[in-house]
Write a protein that binds this DNA or RNA. Structure first.
Length: 435
RNA sequence: GCCGGGGUAGCUCAGCCAGGUGGAGCGCCCGGCUGUUAACCGGGUGGUCGUGGGUUCGAAUCCCACCCCCGGCGCCA
């Protein structure tokens, strides 16, 4: 129908007055009058108002038929007009409906209520400007993670999703039917496989799903989440924390420079993000307990930090904050004891500010076979389940460290979202597996 | 696993305490409107009141059982 080349709407908006252009996209808003119809058309790049006048009867008639979310091709001339959103509109010469949309089920009331209904129609809600903005930020976050690790000499690797042993312990594993074989599960973490791979590549990372069958009902838990994990030979806890803060700063600054428009659309307070620069505050677990006791929390040394406690600690800082040196019993068995204080581990969590909480957990791993065996037994686990993991300590073991970043939580914090489900295109939690 | 809240029109909700012919806004359809910005104005359309049972002359409303959903905690990323 239309002889000239289609252009992105963002491109059309910056065209010269009077320029003849063609666009294609979906009807985002429609306002109908006696002698004119305004169609706001969206594509992946933006929105533009199109004006169909009655004197062009054919185009007017097509515009009249076009429903919200119908896909259309439009050709016309660019006109600067202060009355148009963005100060620029397209005067329609030709309009073709490609796919006429049935009445769109998502209404303003559902959007305003951020209702559960939007999750049931996520396959349609995904095209909203809000979800589009979040997905663009998410894209930038994932890409900047890859860029960062490559710039630091890390190799990207892939670990299996079907596994036979737990990383953290058995309670939160999804069991799968693997040709009738017993004890096959979906992975909770790629960490152990990354620990294998450092013996050939030394510095490795992966971005992959992790699965946790925890019956968590909170705004920061999913049963399937995207886990960015890294492991490095010879690295100690201080080097690890520097690496983590550099990673977070790189991601945040990339999003700030490339996704300012999307953050604005999401209503994110970017000033809070602009403060995210190294170094991050480092708080020893011991200090954290003292601070919490001063704040009136009923907490003793040795207790794990709950979400109220974490929130109270991050309140005092504008940047993400490290909590390091957790007691042995608060952390998984593979965390290395501090040689000078065996009751604590060389571990560190990174807590995001503004109440978002834990986004990274990591630390030094036990490299000594006997220490690891003792720890496994102490935690009530069976060394038989960890044979190949133990082998790594038998054949040229090295000190090493690693961490896991919850990318969905990171996107949630960077975008300022109320719920982690908003940060994922198709979230899976304890109930939702559709669409 | 523990604690709390809810299920009424396509969507968001009121009605329930105190039983008496099921409502509003949005959507959709029709009409109006000289440029709208989540348009606006008038009219119309639209319901096994989560499911099953009980009490009652009469149940969305009271009672019992069950199903489903939401939030918080714990666990973690």
């Amino acid at each position: 129908m239309i002889p000239i080349e289609f252009r992105a709407i963002s491109d059309a908006l910056s065209s010269e007055e009077g320029e003849r252009i063609a666009i294609r996209g979906w009807v985002y808003r429609k306002r109908e009058f006696k002698d004119k119809i305004f169609l706001v058309i969206r594509d992946s790049s933006g929105i533009i108002q199109c004006l169909a006048r009655k004197d062009n009867q054919k185009a007017f008639e097509e515009a009249r038929k076009a429903t919200i979310e119908s896909s259309v091709e439009v050709e016309g001339c660019i006109k600067k007009d202060p009355r148009a959103p963005g100060g620029c509109e397209l005067k329609v010469d030709e309009l073709k409906i490609v796919g006429l949309a049935a009445p769109f089920p998502i209404t303003k009331s559902a959007v305003d209520a951020s209702s559960d209904f939007l999750l049931d129609v996520r396959h349609l809600w995904i095209r909203s400007r809000r979800m589009t903005a979040i997905l663009k930020v998410r894209d930038t976050v994932f890409r900047s993670i890859h860029d960062f690790f490559r710039s630091r000499g890390f190799y990207e690797v892939q670990a299996p999703m079907f596994v036979t042993a737990a990383v953290e312990g058995g309670a939160s594993l999804f069991k799968v039917d693997y040709f009738g074989r017993r004890d096959v599960y979906l992975t909770q973490s790629s960490q152990f496989y990354l620990e294998v791979l450092i013996y050939s590549l030394e510095r490795v990372y992966t971005i992959a799903p992790s699965f946790r069958a925890e019956k968590s009902r909170t705004r920061r838990h999913l049963t399937e989440f995207w886990h960015a994990e890294a492991e490095a030979a010879w690295m100690d806890l201080n080097e690890l924390m520097r690496l983590e803060e550099d990673l977070i700063c790189h991601i945040v600054s990339t999003v700030l420079s490339e996704r300012a428009e999307e953050l604005g659309l999401l209503g994110r307070n970017v000033k809070a993000l602009e403060l995210v620069e190294p170094p991050f505050p480092r708080l020893a677990y011991d200090e954290a307990i003292e601070i919490l006791q001063e704040k009136g929390f009923d907490i003793q040394w040795g207790d794990d930090l709950g979400s109220d406690e974490e929130r109270a600690l991050t309140m005092d800082f504008e940047k993400p904050v490290f909590i390091y040196g957790y007691p042995e019993k608060c952390k998984a068995f593979y965390h290395k004891p501090d040689p000078s204080r065996p009751e604590i581990t060389l571990s560190a969590d990174l807590l995001a500010p503004e109440g978002y909480g834990e986004i990274i957990g990591g630390g030094e791993r036990i490299e000594n076979l006997d220490v690891l065996l003792d720890k496994i037994k102490k935690f009530g686990l069976d060394p038989k389940d960890y044979e190949w993991y133990l082998d790594l300590r038998r054949y040229g073991t090295v000190p090493h460290s690693g961490f896991g970043l919850g990318t969905d939580r990171l996107v949630m914090w960077i975008c300022g979202l109320q719920h982690i489900r908003e940060a994922v295109p198709f979230p899976r939690d304890i109930r939702k597996v559709y669409p």
